[in-house]
């Protein structure tokens, strides 16, 4: 049975240098709808890899295929050196999956949720109990071990879902929007926990539509849009390639945007008109802002900031990341 494999056998499926996950020409169709449209990527052991994109970009479909919970429509996918179509159960025994929506049993206690999940992997109760203790500590839920799950806060439930995915000590952890819907404090706590896992050598695959999350957690990112990978690299390299060093944000009254944009035409290499502001891409923000003023434009407010992944996404797709 997959769950009770010896450690020696656990590592044998992956040849030296073979990536943890590799996808070539990967396609996922639901009827006529193409959710994932011919994408390629490779994820190395110990890497933290992100899929960044808006809702409906195909991130979750990709994740569910990696988690061996959704059959591949076309192309090849290998996870831990195995084919999900034939070795799904063996692969799943070595990965942890944190789905977008929690699948906790709300009427069982926190501890029982971990116990029963560990049993699915056929781990001995004694082992699960030891690990559960450590995991509850890790996810700061130790004092809630015997409480029912239902009344817990969203952040606590999310941490429990992650703790549950770790009970089998997976080599690969798949997290689908781990912090969506959480307050900033809960998000930072989760990021900290995920960073610790990364330091322990766990390979992470994360989807998110938060650029700060992607920058914080991911070594490498695939920017996804409408089922395709628009670009792939480290966050810093993506910004360097697809944006300028700094951005000047100008807010005028909404009716003036177009007129002001015309007036500022030619000032910088790239200018974006958003519904509520203008973005000027430049390597010298303060200099550009001074020129804006000297041209007789006086915005209601202005801001000079560094480029982010949001700017990369806007450049690649012409749309904002979070609508």
């Amino acid at each position: 049975m997959p769950g009770s494999e010896e450690l020696s056998r656990v590592t044998s499926t992956l040849r030296d240098g073979e990536p943890m996950v590799s996808a070539h020409g990967l396609v996922k169709r639901f009827g006529d709808f193409v959710a994932v449209d011919d994408i390629d990527f490779e994820i190395a052991r110990g890497e933290s890899y992100g899929l960044l994109g808006p809702n409906g970009a195909g991130k979750t479909s990709t994740m569910r295929m990696i988690a061996c919970m959704s059959p591949v429509s076309e192309g090849t996918l290998r996870v831990l050196g195995m084919d999900p179509a034939t070795d799904g159960a063996r692969i799943r025994s070595r990965i942890g999956h944190v789905p977008q929506e929690d699948t906790l049993d709300l009427e069982l206690t926190v501890l029982d949720n971990l116990m029963i999940y560990g049993r699915y992997f056929d781990l001995p109760r004694r082992v699960i109990r030891q690990r559960a203790e450590a995991l509850l500590e890790f996810s700061q839920l130790a004092d809630r071990a015997h409480d029912k799950v239902e009344p817990l806060s969203g952040g606590m439930k999310r941490r429990l879902t992650i703790a549950r995915a770790l009970v089998s000590e997976p080599e690969l952890l798949i997290l689908d929007e781990p912090t969506t819907g959480l307050d900033p404090q809960a998000r930072h706590l989760l990021w900290d926990r995920l960073y610790r896992l990364k330091l322990q050598g766990v390979t992470l695959v994360i989807t998110t539509h938060y650029m700060d999350e992607a920058e914080q957690l991911c070594d490498r990112l695939a920017v996804m849009d409408r089922g395709k990978v628009a670009a792939e690299d480290s966050p810093a390299a993506l910004i360097a390639r697809y944006s300028t060093r700094e951005v000047v944000e100008l807010r005028f009254s909404p009716t003036e945007n177009e007129a002001m944009a015309a007036k500022l035409d030619g000032l910088v290499g790239r200018l974006e008109i958003l519904p509520d502001r203008l973005l000027l891409y430049t390597d010298d923000g303060d200099g550009t802002l001074a020129e804006v003023h000297s041209l007789g434009c006086h915005p209601d407010s202005s801001l000079v900031r560094r480029s982010t992944l949001e700017d990369v996404f806007l450049r690649l797709t012409g749309r904002s990341l979070v609508e």
Partner: peptide, 14 residues
């Protein structure tokens, strides 16, 4: 509602 089956299917269970 509880999506218990999906929790099971994320593990080695088929």
């Amino acid at each position: 509602w509880m999506r218990t089956y999906f929790a099971m299917l994320a593990t080695p269970l088929g």
